[in-house]
């Protein structure tokens, strides 16, 4: 068969691409569209480095077919900061030095932002369980958790 033609929305802009049926959304983002901010750490849904949201729902892009994105709203790390500046979580991760090598960071940003959208006042335990699918080998998680809690507090204050 011919490759699948997909029309979708990525970071607010319409995107069209061709993909094989068994090609993952992650492969489409990275290899077809050049959106390499989304990382592949395992390809099996165990590390969270490829976290993106689909219609607002947090998923691993390696565990979704590119063809399934038809008609969906995809958000990747490239869409988080705007011309107004960094998202508060990106800023907090920097202020807390919550990254070392930084390869898990795009996934942490996407997953953390999804948590704050769902629960603006999470406990430390809730943050830890929410992020259990985002492996970080460098930081020991401490500063990531603190950055998220700090960000949540600041965003609540602003509202």
């Amino acid at each position: 068969m011919a490759r699948n033609q997909v029309t979708t929305t990525i970071n607010g802009e319409q995107a069209e691409y061709l993909c094989d049926t068994t090609q993952s959304l992650l492969s489409v983002l990275r290899d077809e569209l050049g959106l390499t901010g989304t990382k592949e750490g395992c390809g099996t849904g165990d590390c969270g480095a490829c976290s993106v949201t689909v219609d607002g729902r947090l998923v691993c892009a390696c565990l979704m077919l590119g063809v399934e994105a038809e008609g969906k709203q995809i958000e990747t790390i490239e869409g988080v900061a705007s011309s107004d500046g960094l998202h508060p979580l990106q800023q907090k991760l920097l202020e807390h030095a919550a990254l070392q090598c930084g390869v898990c960071t795009p996934g942490i940003v996407i997953a953390g932002k999804a948590l704050l959208a769902e629960n603006p006042d999470p406990t430390e335990e809730q943050v830890r369980y929410w992020l259990a699918g985002n492996l970080c080998r460098c930081t020991g998680y401490d500063k990531i958790i603190r950055a998220l809690l700090d960000c949540a507090a600041e965003m609540r204050e602003v509202q």
Binding site: G45, V54, L58, A111, A132, G133
Partner: peptide, 9 residues
């Protein structure tokens, strides 16, 4: 079953 990411799927 699985992580938050997997739960969504």
């Amino acid at each position: 079953i699985g992580s938050t990411q997997v739960q969504g799927r």
